[in-house]
Amino acid sequence: MINRAVSKEVLHIHAWLQRVAEIVRHGREAYMRDELLQEAGDSLMMKLGEAAKRLSRLELLAPDGVDWSLAIANRNFIIHQYDEVDREQTWLTLSQDLPRWHSSLRPLIEDAQIALGLS
Rank of each mutant, 00 (worst) to 15 (best):
L60C: 06
Y31G: 02
G65R: 06
R87T: 07
L17A: 08
N76V: 01
I114G: 01
D34L: 01
K47H: 11
M1I: 06
R4L: 09
M46H: 00
R75G: 00
A40L: 12
H80Y: 13
R19A: 14
F77A: 12
A62I: 06
H26V: 02
L108T: 12
D64Q: 11
K53V: 00
G117I: 07
Q18P: 01
L61A: 13
R25M: 10
S69G: 05
V6S: 12
W91A: 09
D34Y: 02
S104C: 14
G117D: 04
Q18D: 15
L94N: 02
I2R: 07
L61V: 07
E9D: 15
M32P: 02
N76A: 00
P107H: 06
R54F: 05
Q38F: 06
V6W: 03
L60T: 02
L58T: 04
D34S: 07
E29N: 06
L70R: 14
Q113W: 07
E39G: 08
V85R: 07
E88L: 12
A115S: 15
I13Y: 01
L118F: 09
E39K: 14
A112L: 08
A52E: 02
A52W: 01
A112N: 05
L98T: 10
L105Y: 02
F77W: 07
E9C: 12
L92W: 11
W68D: 05
W68H: 05
Q18G: 14
H12S: 09
L118H: 03
V66H: 00
L70K: 14
I23Y: 03
I114C: 04
I109C: 00
Y82S: 14
V85A: 06
H12K: 11
R106S: 10
L116G: 01
M1P: 15
P99D: 08
E50T: 07
I78K: 10
M45R: 09
W68F: 10
I23R: 01
L58Q: 13
M1Y: 09
L44I: 15
V24D: 06
D64T: 09
Q38I: 10
V6A: 13
E84G: 01
K8S: 09
D83K: 06
L118Y: 04
A73F: 03
Q81H: 14
L98F: 14
K53M: 06
S7Q: 05
H14G: 00
Q38E: 11
L61F: 02
D111C: 03
A5L: 15
E9Q: 13
L108G: 00
I114H: 11
D97M: 14
E88C: 02
Q38A: 09
L118E: 11
M45Y: 01
T93K: 03
W101C: 08
E50L: 11
H12Y: 09
R28F: 11
R4M: 12
H26G: 06
A5C: 09
G117N: 07
L58E: 10
A51Y: 01
E39A: 12
L17M: 14
S103L: 13
